[in-house]
Design a protein around this nucleic acid. Structure first.
Lengths: 160, 160
DNA sequence: TCGTGGCTTCAGTGCAGACTGAAGCTAGGG
DNA sequence: CCCTAGCTTCAGTCTGCACTGAAGCCACGA
């Protein structure tokens, strides 16, 4: 099948592993979740059943079940059920990707809530609060910047 | 000592735990590393020895050694050695904080290297590359935005 | 050259979570 | 109302990592 053969001079299976490794490091995802995501980005046809995912990635049905649910919860893939005894199929929600990642970025700036609280805790402590003030200033600024990102992405994608 | 007493109506030890929990979730840091960082943000005086950190956070000398090194490697704290047999002291590098975090954010956009590579891998596959193209478009845009952030932070902090 | 304080190293422990695979559940078809 | 395909659940295994604390190492002072 074309999914595991050479395409464009590179092994898709290598690409899948790289992708999974990156998502493990960056998002703390299990490797299998990253593999599912990567596979669903390049497979043809775009929709796959749980059994097909398990076969393609050499993972157990339990693992597929768990990780597919994780990806569904994050909003990165969708599940389409079909009538009768047919298996449900999964596919990448490429349109939701930006949303999910932007939300994740915004959460980084939530540290500003902690630093602002810390600043209040140290109020009246004079110089002692200097460190906290500097860090808080950064996170407060970052918080504003990141919330603007979403608007800019919408403008950017509308523009084309 | 004032570090563990009530300040501004909130327990610093609770704040330290919240801070550590957030950094564990967000940065994948060990809890103790987050505690050290939090403690160094609010302690008085600002410099502390490894032994003091261990005592304040109820952690073993080995744990302090490991996690202090992790924070040094990330550039979030500095180590100052002193002459003779005196213990080295650690303190927060509040000025480096923005730099470290911006670099971390930029690494998120490195996924664009994978998606661009994936796109090349799927070249000539027509519709099959549509998913990848959309995701790649987002990461490429994000990559540009995040690299601009650094410039904007410098402008912002110079302005005040 | 020895003594000592401070730091790092490392073997050992415990725990968390990723993964498996079989058993159980669910829902449509006969 | 049973059969069966497909999915989920769960107990068990295993790997990896955070943490400990004691032993070793290093550097300075005497």
């Amino acid at each position: 099948m074309s999914d595991t053969s050479r395409v464009g001079g590179r092994q898709p299976s290598d690409w899948i592993e790289s992708f999974a490794a990156r998502f493990e490091a960056q998002e703390g995802m299990p490797l299998i979740a990253g593999r599912i995501l990567a596979f669903l980005l390049i497979c043809d046809p775009v929709e796959r059943t749980a059994a097909e995912l398990g076969a393609a990635l050499s993972a157990s049905s339990g693992s597929i079940s768990t990780n597919v649910r994780l990806l569904l919860a994050r909003g990165l893939i969708s599940k389409t059920t079909r009538r009768g005894r047919e298996a449900a199929v999964y596919q990448v929600r490429e349109d939701a990707w930006a949303n999910v990642m932007l939300r994740r970025l915004e959460s980084v700036a939530e540290v500003s809530e902690l630093t602002t609280g810390g600043l209040r805790m140290l109020s009246g402590q004079g110089d002692r609060a200097d460190r906290m003030r500097k860090v808080d200033e950064f996170y407060s600024w970052l918080s504003g910047e990141l919330s603007q990102l979403r608007g800019r992405w919408e403008a950017h994608s509308r523009r084309r």
